[in-house]
Design a protein around this nucleic acid. Structure first.
Lengths: 344, 344
DNA sequence: TTGAAAGCGCTAACAT
DNA sequence: ATGTTAGCGCTTTCAA
């Protein structure tokens, strides 16, 4: 006798008794696959279940069946619009397939992520979806957990970070950033600074590298790079730091994601400057807020919701050879980077 | 000598065999409550589990124990910053208590919400948290489901909507809107329009009513009210509509939430107007984006993350008499409602 | 301390 | 079409 005595809900047996049938019949009537139950008894059982307020015990069902109707989602930060949008896509896809979504949050800690995958594995979900770029380079332990899960029949899909041997939905961060660089150069910009996230985040690295590569093609070098948090406050702090260094030769700041870019715009206003006019700002992701800020933010559009949807499709399809789906990005030029006469 | 039969994970029995002990001992060593296992065997079992990559089957554990380590969260829309922020608080609180969060999304449909609660009940979660204002007035079916769940020993907490007989974290929507109205009148505004959500949303109703009540105390009436979606696009459409009606006597538009207000600001800019200067705009919630837009949005601050945290605390405390916790709101005046000389 | 054995609530052969 | 009978993987008496 421990604590936590569940006041106990009615069981299938209760329903069966109430309806005057066997447990098997009740099971078939309520949750059965191939219905082979007479209309008469079916009605009996249904009425009994209704009367008792019966809800099948999904855990028991899962142990008996050896499989669950859930998909587990792992994100870094659910309050971040990038992830919550992906999550929305995944929830849509999962519910369409009759699956429940369970969610865990890593807080961008590799250790926590590993721990979470391990716990989740215990839930025996139908599929596990990892959203957001992997963190750090030591993927071995994580890969091991996922391998074990796959070996036991689980499905895995990864959003955003190719490199793991599982179904993957990816976007070309490098290419997107390159295209952005091209477009900005074409708009007359020549002197750039970059606000990037922690170096362990592949996404940040790829975008920053891609941007530099794009500029390099035009013979331009990035004049200044600041590493900061992958958050709005990070962007604000970095921009404030940049201004403090008195770099007023910079014409445009590229932040590797929109929330950082928006933080940077706020820092500019705090310093009495006007984003777009005094200094161009560009981001990456095209989150909803990108059109809400003024001036609207130039960025690279990422189809986050679609990525979530595709991810659970991939996971459910469960091809044996990991499929890699690239979703397109597109440069969106807005008022935060007005065309300017090149000064070179 | 390992087996690793493809298709299923190692079970407790596998571990026990590998360690040369009984299943009971293995259970006690790995997940047991009062540890009464010799250091020697404990090490044996632990090593065996490690070697096999064992992860306990949580469903089986749940059926055996009759209780789970999960809390179920129900939100209307996870991509909405208001809800994702509450969700973040709940995830924090739950993980601190060693609980996993499962999440379902209603899409603001009362039917879907009811269905979800019913499914969730089958998971036998430790607690169910409903976030966001209840929808519609026919709460009976929902209340019934929750009652049954409670009767079976489940815990329920509700965020945002008092009125259900469960632990509740609420904010004073009416009072907050009244205070906002007071502050705006004090700032010299006299001629108001209101953008409200669908009437079935209590939150929308309370805020709109409170705002009107606050104005009434100053002898002012709302000049125009538009009902629209509770979303950014809804705010945009409503504002566009208002402008189309040629109501240029209006001095300030109050939208019952921030995303709508931000949509309205965008509509103003689309029409060549400058929010704040040509027309005051105020919202409600103080989402992160409220300080990102320009001009920064005047609003009523709601401690969303704290609400999530408190909610799961309430649920876990599980007082028998439903506790009602009011969290304070506060008016935040920003540049979208500059002080103006009253024209009255 | 340990193991044997009886469940937890449900499903799935196997008979009938 | 229905009931009987084993399980599913784990926990928890109950003896030893």
């Amino acid at each position: 006798m421990t604590e936590q005595a569940t006041g106990s809900s009615p069981t299938l047996l209760d329903v069966a008794r109430e309806a005057g049938v066997s447990a098997a019949t009740a099971s078939r009537a309520l949750n059965g696959s191939t219905r082979t139950v007479s209309a008469e008894k079916l009605a009996l059982v249904l009425r009994a279940a209704e009367r008792l307020g019966y809800a099948p015990n999904l855990s028991a069902q899962a142990t008996a069946r050896g499989s669950t109707k859930t998909v587990a989602l792992i994100v870094h930060d659910i309050a971040d619009p990038y992830f919550s949008s992906i999550a929305a896509g995944i929830v849509d896809g999962a519910e369409a397939a009759g699956l429940t979504v369970t969610m865990a949050v890593t807080g961008r800690s590799p250790d926590r992520e590993l721990e979470i995958v391990s716990i989740l594995r215990g839930h025996r979900p139908h599929a596990i979806v990892l959203a957001g770029s992997r963190i750090g380079d030591d993927q071995e332990a994580l890969a091991g957990e996922l391998r074990a899960y796959r070996a036991a029949g689980g499905r895995v899909a990864v959003v955003s970070q190719p490199g793991l041997p599982h179904g993957t939905v990816a976007i070309d961060n490098r290419g997107g950033a390159e295209a952005l660089a091209d477009a900005l150069v074409a708009h007359g910009y020549r002197r750039f600074a970059v606000l990037r996230g922690p170096d362990v985040l592949h996404t940040s690295r790829d975008r920053a590298d891609g941007f530099a590569a794009g500029l390099a093609r035009a013979g331009i070098e990035v004049l200044d790079t600041i590493e900061t948090d992958f958050t709005e406050d990070g962007g604000h702090a970095a921009m404030t730091g940049l201004l403090g260094r008195g770099r007023d030769d910079i014409e445009l700041v590229f932040a590797v994601n929109d929330v950082m870019a928006i933080g940077a715009m706020r820092a500019l206003r705090d310093a009495g400057l006007v984003p777009g006019r005094d200094l161009g700002v560009a981001g990456f992701d095209d989150i909803a807020a990108a059109v809400d800020v003024d001036p609207a933010l130039t960025t690279v559009a990422v189809p986050t919701r679609a990525m979530g949807l595709r991810a659970i499709e991939l996971a459910l399809a469960g091809a044996d050879e990991p499929e890699l789906v690239w979703l397109p990005t597109s440069v969106v030029l807005r008022e935060s980077t007005p065309r300017r006469a090149s000064t070179t």
